[in-house]
Nucleic acid binder design. Structure first.
Length: 419
RNA sequence: GGAGAGGUGGCCGAGUGGUUGAAGGCGGCGGUCUCGAAAACCGUUAUGGGUCACUGGCCCAUCGAGAGUUCGAAUCUCUCCCUCUCCGCCA
């Protein structure tokens, strides 16, 4: 969230940032509630201070004649405090609904058409009549949507045989690169998290409908490993020397919104459950932007090693989302689909998430704590990486050549579907 | 899931209604001593918020969380969460 102090001091900039993101920011309501909160709080604290003084006197003198006044003061303080707290609750709830501001380098725009291609890597493979990954996957017997619909629902999938093994190989490969070469700590996090964690990463209160909730319990299926990884340090004060913290985790991700839009209904693209290797960094306020570029490069490295053509897209203000300060998408080319698929989304949040999750660090010994900065990105989404591989490395007979770097992870197999 | 024990400041650990935001110890920081260091000694050492005559002062809150009793709660009551031990169950 944004500091209340910022909204007091410069409501106009908060309002205009929200507007350029295509979001609403209840700035006026917040300012009014803030005024009322402080009014009640001040009244309550003034009485409470008097009461404390008199109560101390009573403790020493045992002068029973003070009791009437004390009782009355206690009641008044309680009433004022109750009002202050009620107003503060409303105020806090609204604060959680104010979108983040964004970096100067973010292009102002309304839709994805206003996003900017920052760079491209590789080139589109020259294929005669490329088939889609789901066509290939089903005919190879490594992807199965029909049985998934029977067992679960639409928007679920089975990976079978070499398909399942391909995902396992990719996971292994990605984790190895990120831990050995990029210095991330491998983590196996819980995939059920509580509401406070969902608030911490800004999945709540606004986007509860996008996630799956466990019935009768305060637990949510994670929409991304970002939630448990970022919230790992919730309510902590970290040593500056221990920053940046770098975590990588492979988890399933669960999203209930997938499907609502009626988009990407075919194929292994937009599912209620998908797998992802996720990168998270907790940094200080000074180095977050360079650490962000570093994380992006770490994710790109995977695509490069796999030999997949991709573009880096800088998201415009209107397309970047509620919480992000700056965001890049990595889009991998899928020849069969004839378009790019988003295989990674890398974001920096400034202190927006850290304020919600109360993640701080002490810049130096004795210095007051500051809010950390948080960064995350997919490194990469497994499902769509598989799509890009199948479509990029397909051969005329419908079999799939395994990318060089992946072969050791597939036990030396160099072609999928070979009989 | 059942039974029992327990959750206090960076850590250990006192504290069962009244100058207890919290003894004592450890650790950290500053100082005295020393050529320097160690030891010893002295001092200091939380977080959030409000407010003002604002590089400082005053005030409020915080002893797992929430609610309650009381003029007053770390201390009493209730609910919840978590940890530990034993049993059960399992991967």
């Amino acid at each position: 969230m944004l500091p209340l102090e910022l909204i007091r001091r410069d409501p106009e900039s908060v309002r205009s940032a929200a507007q350029r993101k295509g979001e609403d920011a209840p700035v006026d309501e917040i300012l009014e509630l803030d005024r009322r909160w402080r009014e009640h709080l001040h009244a309550a604290e003034t009485i409470k201070a008097d009461q404390n003084r008199l109560s101390k006197e009573f403790a020493q003198t045992r002068d029973e004649s003070l009791k009437g006044r004390l009782k009355e003061m206690a009641e008044r303080a309680r009433a004022d405090l109750a009002q202050a707290e009620a107003v503060k609750r409303q105020l806090d709830d609204l604060l959680l609904r104010v979108p983040n501001i964004f970096d100067d380098s973010v292009p102002v725009g309304k839709t994805e058409a206003d996003n900017v291609v920052v760079r491209e890597w590789g080139s589109r493979p020259d294929l005669a009549s490329p088939r889609t990954h789901y066509d290939l996957g089903e005919s190879l017997g490594i992807m199965d949507f029909e049985h998934a619909a029977r067992v679960s629902a639409s928007r679920f999938a089975f990976l079978l045989g070499e398909g399942a093994r391909l995902e396992r190989a990719l996971v292994q490969f990605m984790l190895d690169v990120h831990t050995r070469e990029h210095g991330y700590l491998e983590v196996q996090p819980p995939v059920l998290v509580n509401s406070a964690s969902m608030v911490g990463t800004a999945n709540l209160p606004k986007f509860g409908a996008d996630a799956f909730k466990i019935e009768d319990r305060d637990l949510w299926l994670v929409p991304t490993a970002e939630v448990p990884l970022t919230n790992y340090h919730r309510d902590e004060i970290l040593d500056a020397e221990s920053l940046p913290r770098k975590y990588v985790a492979y988890t399933p991700c669960f999203r209930s919104e997938a499907g609502a839009a009626g988009k990407d209904t075919r194929g292994f693209i937009r599912l209620h459950q998908f797998s992802k290797v996720e990168l998270v960094k907790i940094t200080d306020a000074e180095t977050s932007m360079s650490e962000f570029e570093g994380l992006l490069a770490d994710a790109e490295k995977i695509l490069q090693r796999l030999g997949l053509h991709y573009q880096v897209m800088l998201m415009c203000s209107g397309d970047m989302g509620f919480a992000q300060y700056k965001k890049y998408d990595l889009n991998a080319w899928c020849p069969g689909l004839g378009r790019y698929l988003e295989v990674s989304s890398c974001s920096v949040f400034n202190d927006f998430q850290a304020m919600r999750a109360n993640i701080r660090y002490r810049p130096s010994r004795g210095a007051p704590p500051r809010f950390a900065h948080t960064i995350n990105g997919s490194g990469l989404a497994l499902t769509r990486t598989i799509d890009a591989i199948l479509e990029t490395y397909q051969r005329p007979d419908g079999t799939i050549e395994v990318p060089e770097q992946l072969r050791p992870y597939l036990g030396g197999v160099d072609v999928i579907g070979k009989r």
